[in-house]
Design a protein around this nucleic acid. Structure first.
Length: 423
RNA sequence: GGUGGGUUGCCCGAGUGGCUAAAGGGGACGGGCUGUAAACCCGUUGGCUUGCGCCUACCGUGGUUCGAAUCCACGACCCACCA
């Protein structure tokens, strides 16, 4: 299958500037780039789609450039934003660039044959003399046309928010990037999110005018969910690629919990599984949805890709423990990670020695607001200690309640956890 | 400014002197079922003790009464109609 057809089958193609791109890609290696905004020190899964896109190009033998916007990040892209953004400091942006650079290295090969290239547009934008820029670049942009751009027009019509000259100029800078990369790296294609269409086209125009080179542009679709909610958010907030921000366990769980209706698309987007494999998994969703083989495979593939084999094994093990029942055998570090979002209470070890009444301790720890509520919970079979149902209202808390050196895991209902740490 | 109606537990809402910790619904929580889903079914939903016991509760304050969410007075707030 041709690369372009494969991308189309996977759903990566939202818009293309020229249909000829499909053939052009078959004629030999092409250089392409995609920009990443340093708006935080980590990418979140919203950036996963462009990253996967780049990876497909690299696998097909094309030369990919990952451009981190260390320069444009200082200005701020107005695309899709309703408010003027507050400027970030140079130090902040520099730090973010570093964080993002490290993460991209997990997805793209930067060594061996046909290595990917990582660039930072601060390297050329920061040096750009203002007068030269205005004469050589600015001359080619019609303000009339720019005012018609959706992202700009909205902001101008809305007196509440407005748009500063700084953000208005953003598109020129991104256009200049394309020009620069075309000149220095023979870059012929820019890809990006669907909100980047305008910026991409602006870059192509500039490149044609100044270099006489025809280039391509292509955008990826916005990732949507069948139920209309926003992709990329979990109950705990944004899902990040940085394991410090979103633990591999949470990450794995995020994918496991995707709806049946979304999984086929997500398998195409976020895994390298073949068409055959994906179609087989789709058949499973139809024939035996309760097994959720597709979700499991999706979670496995993406977690392995982002966090590696070891982290995946840990996440699977933790998931089995939490949802399968037995907590025994998990170490303290894993427990703390799995329950990192669950509330916890520190208690003196003496409590165990005294053998205090479990319900009293739980009321004290804020698990229940009254003893009556605690009793009711036990009566209806909703209280668990280390995932084993507590059925005696007068149960006492002793050393035996500990699952590890310091921890006892309290659960009410299906998934409300509370950790008791004895120090 | 006048007249009439209202203020109930997390929310809505029944309740017009004792049988009312207060119907019913929603929500929430728990159990069952299940696919770490949806739907559905059952249960719980003031506190303390848990066997019938006590305490605190129906806007606030005071009163009538053996007994008041329920009657009366005053106050606060809300709504409607009239000016």
């Amino acid at each position: 299958m041709r690369l372009f057809d494969m991308l189309q089958w996977r759903g990566f193609v939202h818009q293309v500037t020229h249909p000829e791109l499909a053939d052009a890609l078959e004629k030999g290696p092409m250089t392409l780039y995609c920009g990443f905004d340093p708006t935080a020190d980590s990418l979140h899964i919203g950036s996963l789609l462009p990253i996967m896109g780049l990876a497909h190009f690299q696998r097909a033998g094309h030369r990919v450039i990952a451009l981190v916007g260390g320069g444009t990040g200082l200005i701020g892209d107005p695309s899709g934003k309703t408010d003027e953004r507050s400027l970030m400091t140079k130090e902040q942006v520099a730090a973010y660039v570093e964080g993002i650079r490290r993460q991209l290295e997990y997805f793209l090969r930067f060594d061996g044959p046909n290595p990917a290239i990582m660039l930072n547009n601060a390297d050329w934008l920061a040096e750009l003399p203002l007068l030269d820029f205005l004469r050589d670049i600015g001359k080619h942009f019609s303000v009339n046309a720019m005012l018609n751009r959706e992202s700009v027009r909205k902001r101008i019509e809305d007196r509440e928010h407005g748009i500063s000259y700084t953000e208005f100029s953003y598109s020129l800078l991104q256009a200049y990037d394309y020009l620069h990369l075309c000149r220095e790296y023979e870059c012929r294609l820019q890809v990006g999110g669907s909100d980047q269409w305008g910026n991409i086209v602006a870059g192509m125009d500039l490149t044609r005018r100044l270099l006489g080179t025809d280039t391509f542009g292509m955008t990826f679709p916005l990732v949507t969910k069948a139920d209309g909610s926003k992709f990329g958010k979990s109950e705990a907030g944004n899902v990040w690629l940085d394991p410090e921000r979103t633990s591999p366990y949470r990450f794995y769980q995020f994918w496991i919990n995707q709806a049946d209706a979304d999984v086929p698309r997500f398998l195409r987007f976020f895994t390298f599984l073949s068409q055959k494999e994906i179609e087989a998994l789709e058949a499973c969703i139809q024939s035996e949805p309760e097994k959720r083989a597709a979700q499991r495979r999706l979670a496995e593939e993406v977690t392995r890709l982002v966090h590696g084999e070891d982290a995946l094994a840990g996440a699977v093990k933790a998931s089995q423990a939490v949802f399968g029942g037995a907590l025994q055998g998990l170490d303290e570090a894993t427990l703390n990670e799995v329950f990192s979002e669950a509330p916890g209470t520190e208690l003196p070890r003496a409590v165990l020695a005294e053998g205090r009444a479990l319900l009293d301790v739980l009321v004290g720890a804020g698990v229940f607001s009254s003893k009556g509520e605690a009793r009711r919970m036990v009566k209806s079979g909703g209280l668990y200690l280390n995932n084993e149902r507590v059925d005696a209202e007068d149960a006492r808390l002793t050393e035996q309640a500990l699952i590890t050196e310091h921890i006892a895991v309290i659960r009410t209902g299906k998934k409300n956890y509370h950790l008791l740490r004895f120090v």
